[in-house]
């Protein structure tokens, strides 16, 4: 496969500020990133460890989208089920261990057990001509060292979406270590504030420009995002969605899309930013993951063409 979206899968119950509640949405960084790539291209594979219930709950979505399931491995009875609570702005207020109390152990431990090992990922990249890979990851150096060997061997571009809890100032040395093996780094405004211990957005952008990585996707919530490359930053206002239903996964979906466009456009920061925003606007228009990704392609391509041309003519 040309592209890979790897890492955790979640099954989300969404609780929204206006009282809506929706259960069993497909989510988690890897599936959302998969959708962000798949809206543009069918040549993408999802690599994730799940519970056996995944295949039952999402059979319709898997069949409808003709998803290659060879990299989706059932290691436990149940997947990671979580409850996500959103405020009126669509920001996540809280996440807890889900209403599925069949979970056999506490959810954080279970997320750890289902986390993808570098060796498990390696089987799907070795000799497969993978062009780009997305995976949300923490800052554990040993895992990065193993990952670095795989990346060196297989030569793909890597999009690192940092796991939020690890994006803090005291981890800066580990983050710099990991950035050696990263082509594009994705983080949101809250994570950036924690990393640089400031709320000043201009200062954050200045500091992001100093990081040793080719491109940064800096997501600023409803306002949209910045792409940062070679000391310059590019603001991309968010795109108005058709519907405003479920903000879960907008960051992952836009980051997956950014990985794809980074590889396809030779790292054009304008195309990357616009295509990331298009993916987020599509994602928020549905509960959970985009239900039929290929069906969005024509519209997404037309939108991208128009918006990129408009941005570049400014």
């Amino acid at each position: 496969m040309k592209y890979i979206a790897a890492g955790n899968t979640m099954i989300d119950n969404g609780h929204y500020a206006d009282g809506r509640r929706v259960t069993q949405n497909l989510g988690g960084p890897a599936p959302f990133a998969y959708s962000g790539i798949r809206i543009w291209d069918d040549e993408v594979q999802l690599i994730s460890n799940v519970g056996r219930d995944f295949y039952t709950i999402f059979k319709e979505w898997l069949d409808k989208n003709n998803v290659d399931t060879s990299g989706i491995v059932a290691k436990l009875d149940t997947s990671n089920h979580i409850d996500m609570y959103f405020d009126e702005h669509g920001d996540v207020l809280d996440i807890d261990s889900g209403t599925d109390k069949r979970n056999t152990y506490l959810y954080a431990e279970k997320i750890g057990y289902l986390k993808l090992f570098p060796e498990e990922l390696s089987k799907f990249t070795e000799g497969k001509n993978v062009k780009g890979l997305y995976m949300a990851q923490n800052t554990d150096r040993l895992i990065w060292e193993k990952f670095a060997e795989i990346k060196k061997r297989d030569g793909f571009k890597y999009m690192w979406e940092i796991e939020g809890a690890h994006c803090i100032a005291k981890n800066m040395e580990d983050i710099l270590f990991a950035l050696q093996y990263t082509d594009v780094f994705s983080l949101n405004i809250g994570e950036a504030r924690n990393l640089f211990e400031t709320d000043d957005e201009d200062e954050i952008i200045r500091k992001l420009k100093e990081l040793p990585v080719d491109m940064i996707l800096f997501r600023v919530g409803k306002r949209g995002l910045f792409t940062i490359k070679e000391g310059k930053h590019y603001y991309h206002d968010s795109i108005k969605p058709e519907r405003l239903l479920d903000p879960a996964g907008c960051g992952n979906t836009s980051t997956g899309s950014a990985m794809y466009s980074y590889c396809e456009t030779d790292g054009d920061p304008i195309a990357v930013g616009i295509m990331a925003n298009i993916a987020a606007a599509l994602n928020i228009s549905y509960y959970g993951i985009i239900p039929h990704m290929e069906a969005e392609r024509e519209k997404a391509n037309a939108m991208a063409k128009e918006l990129i041309s408009k941005y570049k003519s400014k």
Partner: peptide, 8 residues
């Protein structure tokens, strides 16, 4: 973190 315990 508990994730580390699960991972190991």
């Amino acid at each position: 973190g508990s994730q580390n315990l699960g991972y190991l």
